[in-house]
């Protein structure tokens, strides 16, 4: 093929790739073109063309570099944040806090840590989600600045009487775990049980004794699926009460569960180990709006583990 024509083709290609944001491909084609010019110095105007092309190559190099530098972690508009909250959380009147929690977690996952932090702080006021919110606050601090910031936050909570001792213990366990994973040599102060609290609670009901459960397996004790197991992630937990989101496909099964029904054979999965135990169905609600509409929220009280 005619060299001049070949070069022209390469440059045309490079230009279109560049216009479509395919900078690496564009750079490659310019480099090929430059190579051909170098080998064919007899071509008209070749020195001039070479300098034009090498300028483009270095400009593309810059663009590629700057693209690699930026990330998705800048803050976006309030309106966009609200949309994320809405699209990535479920909501029902009965479980408003759970929905808010999901929304806040989605914001954090999209890197909107400042806004998420605000939402998590608001959620601290709600008993059912406050410990989960606190853990996420610590996570956000780590993402935004450092583990030191999370430790400082924990120390603040330690000296205020915002959380009771059992809540503080759970938060401590979580943070210590994060510290240990980073192999840092920090040991958080142990939490002593506050006397009023632990005397009033029966050992069994003390949420303190309940580990974080990440998922559970329920073994059917009757019906056609007797003996088989279904597993669900825990969508949130407060002490010995855990909530699961059950797909609408399981309607029949959910319908068969009455409030107070005892699930005799349940497997509780915690980060440490799996425990066998039983649970009590304490509430069930159909989710009426949001992306999980039609599904069920099932609350199960852990009675032994």
């Amino acid at each position: 093929m005619n060299i001049a024509k070949q070069i022209k083709g390469l440059i045309q290609e490079a230009e279109i790739y560049s216009s479509q944001g395919l900078y690496i491909e564009a750079k490659g084609k310019y480099e090929n073109a430059a190579g051909l010019f170098q080998k064919n110095k007899q071509l008209e105007n070749s020195d001039n063309m070479l300098s034009v092309i090498s300028k483009r190559i270095s400009a593309l190099g810059q663009k590629i570099k700057s693209l690699n530098g930026t990330g998705a972690n800048h803050e976006i508009s309030m309106k966009a944040q609200n949309l994320i909250k809405q699209l990535f959380s479920f909501s029902s009147e009965e479980h408003e806090e759970a929905a808010k929690l999901e929304g806040a977690i989605a914001l954090a996952k999209f890197g909107q840590f400042e806004r998420a932090l605000k939402e998590f702080f608001e959620l601290l006021r709600h008993d059912t989600v406050r410990v989960v919110a606190a853990k996420n606050i610590l996570r956000c601090h780590v993402a935004l600045s450092s583990l030191d910031a999370a430790v400082a936050q924990f120390q603040k909570w330690l000296t205020s009487d915002f959380f009771n001792s059992s809540e503080l213990k759970r938060i401590r366990l979580f943070l210590q775990d994060m510290i240990d994973k980073k192999e840092l040599n920090i040991t958080l102060p142990e939490i002593r049980s506050d006397d009023k609290g632990s005397n009033q609670l029966h050992e069994k009901d003390d949420p303190d004794n309940v580990l974080d459960i990440s998922s559970i397996g329920i073994i059917f004790d009757s019906g056609p699926r007797k003996g088989s197991i279904i597993e669900y992630d825990v969508s949130f937990q407060s002490g010995n009460m855990i909530s699961l989101i059950i797909s609408s496909k399981e309607k029949e099964w959910v319908d068969s569960l009455s409030i107070g029904h005892k699930l005799e054979d349940v497997q509780y999965y915690s980060p440490i180990a799996m425990f066998k135990g039983s649970g009590l169905v304490s509430s069930k609600t159909e989710i009426k709006s949001g992306p999980k509409r039609g599904d069920y929220c099932l609350d199960i009280k852990i009675i032994s583990m």
Binding site: G21, T70, I76, A80, I84, F110
Partner: peptide
């Protein structure tokens, strides 16, 4: 149509 967080015309999060 909402485009959430773009960089130039590159999508960073999602369009909806």
């Amino acid at each position: 149509m909402v485009s959430i967080n773009t960089e130039g015309d590159r999508t960073l999060f999602f369009d909806f």
